[in-house]
Design a protein around this nucleic acid. Sequence first.
DNA 1: CTCCAATATTTACGTATGTAAAAAAGGGAG
DNA 2: CTCCCTTTTTTACATACGTAAATATTGGAG
Lengths: 345, 345
Amino acid sequence: MTKPRINTMEELSVAIGVSRPTLSRFFQDPTLVKEKTVKRIQDGLERVEYIPNFFATRLNRKSTGIIGVIIPYLNDLFFTKLLESVEVAAMEAGLTVITQCSHSDPAIEARAAETFMSMNVDGALVAPLGDHSDQAVHQRLKSRLPFVLMDSRPTTMPDVDFVGTNHPQSTGLITEYLCRVGEPPAFLAMPRVNFNALEREAAYIAQMEKMGFEPEVLGAEQINEGAHFEDHGEAIMDAEFARGKYTERSILCVNDRVAIGAIRAAARHGLMPGRAAKGGLRIAGHDDYPLCPYLNPSLTTVAQNTDAIGKKAVSRILEIIRGDVNEGVPQITLFDGNLKLRESA
Amino acid sequence: MTKPRINTMEELSVAIGVSRPTLSRFFQDPTLVKEKTVKRIQDGLERVEYIPNFFATRLNRKSTGIIGVIIPYLNDLFFTKLLESVEVAAMEAGLTVITQCSHSDPAIEARAAETFMSMNVDGALVAPLGDHSDQAVHQRLKSRLPFVLMDSRPTTMPDVDFVGTNHPQSTGLITEYLCRVGEPPAFLAMPRVNFNALEREAAYIAQMEKMGFEPEVLGAEQINEGAHFEDHGEAIMDAEFARGKYTERSILCVNDRVAIGAIRAAARHGLMPGRAAKGGLRIAGHDDYPLCPYLNPSLTTVAQNTDAIGKKAVSRILEIIRGDVNEGVPQITLFDGNLKLRESA
DNA sequence: CTCCAATATTTACGTATGTAAAAAAGGGAG
DNA sequence: CTCCCTTTTTTACATACGTAAATATTGGAG
């Protein structure tokens, strides 16, 4: 059962009687070798255990076939969904994906970038840490290799390829829906450290003004450094509900995790948000976090098209790698959000 | 601003006037070089941009300093929590972590294992795919390098190092609690494809019998291949509640995601699980999924000590790497669960 | 000033594979 | 059977760095 183990291509070449350069070509692309020889090699590989060395193969190639991906958090299903989409698309393109998580720490993000450069990755896909990221790190990556930002984009890097969501559209959409079907919503915001959060807040304000309503933002002050989004939403709304405020209002939350906290606060005060309750409390979110359908009440939200974002990020980085680009003209791709009507609003 | 870029250690050595072998030793461990030389090298590095090549450094070392981690899913906060703990512990130990996700597919898991072998990783930490994993793959990994299983353990691999949760204890604990405080629970199971799920089911039955109650298992039949855990829990309980059954019972779910589905089903039938409701519906879970505190009702559960599991897995693999092991004696480490009493039971 | 020990440099080879060019082998057409 | 084209083999060098041994340098003690 246990096959003889062969450690180098050199040994393999004597073991199955095919020259090493031919083997090298075989492992890179079997079609480069005559069919009969392919057969002989495959038969030989059946009889022994041999795995080409990853480092040696990458050391002297013009292309490593690796793309590096950085995500800011692991404990957020939005980013894991995005990562899943990226990994699947990259796999289909025959790329090896090396994923690093910043763990909310710019120093770790910077180290991940170093690792990618030291690996000569073909390209890097980065979802940054809001404005905690060290932009010099992104700039350096961009200057050295194909680089695409995902999800969130610093205003100070306008010349970078980006794939994300059209927040004016997505936030406008749900704002419009809430206004149309009931009371104009207040906006439950985040402390202003996150570009997407700011974009959504601005989009909310714009849409409200467009419809002739007075925008109203709450929760922009920092409650608790390092707390989860859910805690933020719960803390803010708990305080408001305790004072008897917002109990019959519509509340658009900056994202679903904040909305989960808000719904929780409502429940603690005996409130059940829902569109059925005319004139009563409504709560909506943004993102279509995977658990939305299972919440009580299930959460009305706008879905980000994470699947499209991941696929597009991969196809775009491939374009840049292949050089099919207008030099100096960054491509900004924004996908629309889709309304997900559920019970909460 | 833009420093001259240097690509090889050779060039660097002429640029700052220190020999290449000395530089090599500096990059591996600066204490191997006299302080004054260290200063000179660091000053030189300030003036140029140089990053050692990842592949070249790993090619000829006895140890790569890399550990490979495989997790079965990304879209599950339990595994991302575990992964986070592993990454932090490995980082502290100075290891580079390469993470691969199986995406529920044994073929992808097998490819990840190949990648690790081709990288000469120092060790592999694997959370398997229930019984979907190809055990020959695990066996092969184990035969070639330090290998530790996490979270779930095939009964057919008793001779492998393992770190996980003591399910008889954890499930026994919550079963005992439910019996003590109210009606003895029924067990909402999973289709029998998951070792942990089976262990918990067995532990539930054992605890019930020990306490003189009749165990009762539901949901062990497959409802919908590929559905999420939440869907499974919701579908099973929705069907039962629709027939008016289990509406005043205690239900222990095989895990929190199934419990989330069960709570959702309850809500759709106008039921509000809770320990306050004497004699009424109670629902409990297992794992302490990060969202449990924010659900309505918040979910009573048993926490797995993911942090301890991740840390221990790393420290154990380090022991094996260093050779501090009783050859042939696998170490099985099981951490106890902790009761998390919340509203739902 | 000389000697000794610590440190650095030189030299040389090793790691596993990619890659290019020249030489040899193989196969089919004429 | 020979010629020509395709494929393979041979040969040689490249990749970027690790590592060991021999040699040179340095700094301080005596």
